[in-house]
Design a protein around this nucleic acid. Sequence first.
DNA 1: TTGCTCCTCACGTCACGTGAGGTGGC
DNA 2: TTGCTCCTCACGTCACGTGAGGTGGC
Lengths: 251, 251
Amino acid sequence: MTNPNPTRRFLRIGELARRSGFSAKALRLYEARGLLKPCTHSPAGYRLYGPEAMQRLMQIAVLRRCGFALAQIGALLRDDGAAVADLLAERVAELEHSLRTTQQALQALRWAAARAGSSSHYSTDDLLENLHMTHSLDVNLTPEERQAMLARAEQLGAATIAEAEATWPKLIAAVRAAMQAGTPPASAEVQALARRWHGLVHAATGGDPSVTRKISEAYQSQPQAMAAQGMDMEMFRYIGQAMAVAGLKLF
Amino acid sequence: MTNPNPTRRFLRIGELARRSGFSAKALRLYEARGLLKPCTHSPAGYRLYGPEAMQRLMQIAVLRRCGFALAQIGALLRDDGAAVADLLAERVAELEHSLRTTQQALQALRWAAARAGSSSHYSTDDLLENLHMTHSLDVNLTPEERQAMLARAEQLGAATIAEAEATWPKLIAAVRAAMQAGTPPASAEVQALARRWHGLVHAATGGDPSVTRKISEAYQSQPQAMAAQGMDMEMFRYIGQAMAVAGLKLF
DNA sequence: TTGCTCCTCACGTCACGTGAGGTGGC
DNA sequence: TTGCTCCTCACGTCACGTGAGGTGGC
């Protein structure tokens, strides 16, 4: 039953696509990107793949499911001195980030879905109201740091925290007003704002420089989270300057 | 200090971009997609946004972080009879799926990263070896079904399971051979294969039709997972036909 | 006048999907 | 000869980023 036609010893692109679960188009793309080459061609120009192509594709599949980009997979498979461990660490960090944001979104949406299920006329307004996500910042604190934050919150008490949360928007608005009026960071007015700012941050973080730095960096890399608080990078730099003049350090 | 220039009462695109954390380009895109319109224009054609634009953008930001596509956000904000609850349920299901796959990838990568950390020369080969993900299928079983699967596995015993796992590749290869030889599904040979197949599935799922159907559908929607087992849709239909002829039902 | 902002194309990115129009293979 | 597969452009998708070349605003 074995076919003597040598073409039969190879897989054409359609067969390889079926067996690998990739589309033929994807296989051609991988070829263009240098990830996978047919081992030969038929006289008419058909791509012909040997059995090693399947193994290669299974490797590509594993790496793709780990979220590596095609260019990275290419570098990995070429093993061109690309620091494998570095790519690995980078990917882990990215996956951890995406895991956290997915979990947050899912939590919010499940809550909303539960509300939707128990109400007959669920509108977008209801959805938006239910989704009021705490716009939570993605800060990667250690368990100890997280624990310390909770302990501090308990020590401060609900009333103090509520007060601080009410104060922030006003303070931010005042800083924006000063900034827009062109008030110099070194002015007495802005210096006073900077001291209040520093105090609020210090109370929240307990002055832990590591925690404060992490939160600060998180805001800087998540402009949307900043915007949700009424801030932006311009303001960030502005009070930063004011605090520097005042000799105040956050971390 | 208030500027009498009416232009100052509005935000130009750059200011809105800074304050919202979106890029100006994104704001123009949202306008083109019908999500956000400037409330007016300056004589020179500059987009001018009122304070309500900021609110709109915060709504868009929440929905985006939940992973809704721009078109869906448009539908939601227009509230054009789009079944809000349906979009919600769809999004929850998608997020759950992506959460599971992210967790699996993360687990595999962390394991690999640990190996990489303890070896001085970590190559792509090592990585691929460490990543040998169980290519686990994304089946959304209920906790009860999952529990029943575990209980069944325990009852069967490790030896039986190992035997089944060794049998599958051989069985799959035999089915592929028969299919490629053009052997009709109704033939005695293929009928025997179908009975073995059915038996293996039955042993694994305990014959629970719900579980079997879920696993079957999961494979069908994840061609890569099928490929990892040496199967493809063609084979799936082929043994499906053979089982139908034999009067065997999986679910 | 200078420097900054804004405008509208238009092309690039990522990983493909989807035809269009033409040919090989059995 | 028919139907299936393959070939190479080439354009579409998604949510933008990045200039290019020109103008408004203070």
